[in-house]
Every structure is written in structure tokens, then in C-alpha cells.
Amino acid sequence: MPRRPAFTLLATLAVCSCASPKPAEPTISPVHHHPTIATATKPRFHIETTGLEGDAPSPHYWIVTSTHRVPLPDLPHPDATTCPGANFTISPDQQWIFADEKLYHRANEVWLLHRDSELHYSLVGTPTFGRAALDYFTRATGKRLPSDYYFITRIGPWPDHGNRIRLTLYSDDWLDTALCYDLKTRKFSISDDQTTTYY
């Protein structure tokens, strides 16, 4: 039997090795990034007061964050009184600010501010929130104001649920009542619960 040349066997092996499929290269699957919902977090702020120096203080208030300093509206004073500066309570959602200022005797004045955009707020109630509450009370009850009076307005806790805040209007002898204010409808009502007061 004739011998086949060695180069023929080598050529056959070479052809077979070239014709055989290459092993599949590993593929890298693209990473699919699921879209995330960006939660709009409002910057935390505090309120600073300027203009308290001197015998006749004229306070101005500023909302201050780590990057911004924005003025709050000036708080109007229906009575000509010395303005010692207000204390502020900010709602948990930062949509509302309640300002309370001690005036003469035991009286105080209060204002409510609502967030319009970003760090800008506007006043609610004319001429003040406290006077608007008192005006509502006198219209709803027909009770006349004494010629010489003072009154105190206190706000209860910000609501955990719902839209209503509770107020107490108080003055010696002639006024001691609780109102509600609906933050959504912007309307007062006389509270069904007259047992809880905030002095």
C-alpha cells in the first residue's frame, strides 16, 4: 500500500482547523439603568431678623438657606406700636409660616404667610391674619367689639392630617372662642370643639 505524503495530512488538518467555527467570544450585556424619580426636596431654611437696633425698631425678616437670602414681606401693623420682632412657626411641609408678635399689655398680632414659589411667601388676611379672624368672628356672631379692647390669637399644632389649623381668640370678659381655618379653601369657621384653648 503506497504511503501518503506527510504534507497532505498536515494540509488536511490545517484546512479542517480553519474551517471549524471559532469559539464564541464572550459578550457583555449592556447595563440597563432604570429611570429614577427625582424627589423635589425643598431646601431647609431659617428666618433671620434685622432692624431691631435703636429705640424704634423696624424689623425686617429674611428666609435664609445655605445659598439664598430672600426677604419675607414686611408685616403690617394696624396699630401704631413698637415692633419688637415676631416669632415664627413653619409648617412641616414649609408651605405656611405663622408669625406671632407680642404687642402692648397682653395683646399680640399674628400673620399667616403662604408659599407662592421657591422661597417666596405672601401674606394671607387683611390687614393681618389675626384681624381677619376677628372680623370673621364678629360677622358670624354679631358680637360687637368694645371700644377699648385687646385680643390674643394663638395657633394650635400644625395638622398631621387634613387642612385645618385651629386658633384661639381671647380677650378678658368678652372673647374666648376657638376658630378653625381651612388652608385649602382659605375660610374660617367656628370650631365645634370649644374645650381646647391655646394661651
Results as ranks from 00 to 15, higher is better:
Asp173Cys: 04
Ser29Met: 11
Tyr170Ser: 09
Leu13Pro: 02
His33Phe: 15
Ala6Glu: 08
Asp100Tyr: 14
Ala80Met: 11
Tyr61Ala: 02
Thr36Val: 14
Tyr150Met: 15
Thr27Phe: 12
Ser20Asn: 10
Thr168His: 15
Thr49His: 03
Thr27Trp: 13
Glu48Ile: 01
Thr126Ser: 15
Pro23Met: 12
His105Ser: 13
Pro30Gly: 02
Ile28Val: 14
Thr195Ser: 15
Ile97Tyr: 11
Thr141Gly: 04
His34Asp: 12
Thr67Ser: 14
Phe151Met: 02
Asp193Ala: 10
Ser91Glu: 03
Leu167His: 01
Cys83Tyr: 08
Phe45Glu: 00
Ala11Tyr: 06
Ile63Cys: 07
Thr196Phe: 07
Gly54Asn: 02
Asp192Ala: 12
Phe137Gly: 01
Ser29Lys: 13
His46Val: 08
Asp55Trp: 11
Glu118Asp: 12
Asp93Thr: 03
Glu118Thr: 05
Thr67Ile: 11
Tyr170Val: 01
His68Met: 13
Lys187Asp: 09
Ala140Lys: 14
Phe151Glu: 00
Leu123Thr: 11
Glu53Ser: 13
Pro146His: 05
Tyr136Pro: 00
Ala178Ile: 08
Thr153Gly: 07
Pro92Thr: 04
Thr50Val: 07
Leu123Pro: 02
Cys83Phe: 10
Thr141Glu: 07
Pro2Asp: 05
Lys143Ala: 13
Tyr198His: 15
Leu13Asn: 12
Leu52Lys: 06
Thr195Asp: 12
Thr50Trp: 03
Thr8Glu: 15
Tyr199Glu: 08
Ile28Trp: 06
Lys22Gly: 06
Phe129Tyr: 04
Pro43Ser: 08
Asn108Asp: 09
Ala178Glu: 10
Arg186Lys: 11
Ala86Tyr: 00
Leu72Gly: 05
Pro92Met: 10
Tyr136Lys: 05
Tyr170Pro: 00
Gln194Leu: 10
Thr153Leu: 15
Ser122Trp: 02
Pro5Cys: 13
Leu123Glu: 09
Pro2Ser: 09
Ser191Arg: 03
Ala133Ser: 05
Leu103Gln: 13
His32Arg: 14
Ala11Glu: 07
Ala11Cys: 10
Cys180Arg: 10
Leu134Ser: 05
Tyr121Lys: 03
Gln194Phe: 08
Trp62Val: 01
Cys180Met: 11
Thr141Ser: 11
Lys187Val: 05
Ala40Cys: 10
Leu112Trp: 00
Phe129Val: 01
Arg186Pro: 00
Tyr198Met: 06
Arg44Trp: 08
Leu113Ile: 02
Pro78Ala: 03
His68Tyr: 09
Pro2Ile: 07
Ala19Leu: 15
Thr128Arg: 03
His60Ala: 13
Thr39Tyr: 15
Pro146Tyr: 04
Asp79Gln: 15
Thr49Leu: 08
His120Asn: 11
Ser29Tyr: 12
Leu134Pro: 01
Leu167Trp: 01
Phe88Ile: 01
Cys83Gln: 15
Asp193Gln: 07
Lys143Phe: 10
Lys184Arg: 15
Pro76Arg: 04
Leu75Met: 09
Arg131Leu: 08
Arg166Cys: 01
Ile97Trp: 08
Gln194Glu: 04
Thr153Arg: 06
Ser58Lys: 14
Thr12His: 09
Leu179Arg: 07
Asp192Phe: 06
Val64Ala: 08
